[in-house]
Computed example of a mutant assay.
Amino acid sequence: MKTILTRYIPEQAVDPVFELIKSFGVHLKIVNERVTRHGDYRKMPGGGHQITVNANLNKYRFLITLIHEIAHLVAFKKFGSRIKPHGSEWKYSFQKLMLPFIRPEIFPKQLLPLIANHFKNPKASSDTDARLSLALKQFDPPSDKSYIFELPVGSLFKLYNGKVFQKGNRVVKRYECKETETGKIYLFQPNAEVELLK
């Protein structure tokens, strides 16, 4: 397991992550990319704990995602199964588990202040924290995708599912975009990755 972890997370995080996996009896599965999520946690019928994480994540996002999912397990064990999945108990567990990893030996210096700020009140997904998400994406392999915030108003773009939208104006933190086929308006995060149509 340690050898596998070295391919997916920063080297200095391997031993402590391995200890967490061992102590909580986690069955870790590294899976092909799922567009809608980076990872998930599931309590198995036999009482075991399965965590899946997408294989295509860069090592810093992989680490954050893995700790995010272990925090679900810890929160449910400590506070019971009736808690909200991303409620205060999960936030507390995530902060506590993540704290030992927020160090310059593990994360690049430019990420540390953004990660520290995010963990004051962690969100259900690091993608909803636009500043952290954009900072993490600089460690992804090059892509032909564009961010919504980069596109000119009125431009057309396509999602992974083939749906085509026209970018509208920014409303508070998100962009109103019209689905061309139905005319329905949807709100997009500024850092959503899309394919610009020429």
Rank of each mutant, 00 (worst) to 15 (best):
I83S: 06
W90D: 08
F101P: 01
F101N: 02
K22S: 12
P10D: 07
D15A: 14
S23E: 12
H27K: 14
P16V: 02
L99C: 06
I102F: 11
I30H: 05
L73E: 12
E69N: 07
F76N: 10
G48Y: 10
A71V: 01
L20Q: 09
K77W: 15
E105N: 13
N32W: 12
N56K: 08
T36S: 13
I106E: 07
V74I: 06
A13R: 00
G87N: 09
K59V: 00
K59S: 07
S23D: 11
L97G: 04
G80T: 00
N54M: 05
S23V: 01
I64R: 06
Y41I: 03
R103I: 05
K91Q: 15
P45M: 13
K96R: 15
V35D: 15
E89D: 13
L66D: 07
A71G: 04
H49A: 10
S88G: 08
F24K: 06
M44K: 11
H72G: 05
S93A: 14
Q95Y: 08
F62Q: 00
P10E: 11
K29C: 03
K43I: 01
K84W: 11
H72N: 04
P45H: 14
A13D: 05
P45W: 13
K91M: 10
H27M: 08
L28M: 01
I64N: 05
P10R: 11
K91W: 05
V35N: 11
Q50P: 00
F79M: 01
K43T: 01
K91S: 09
F18Q: 15
T52M: 14
M98Y: 06
G48Q: 10
F94N: 09
N58A: 03
H38M: 08
D40N: 15
G39E: 10
I30E: 06
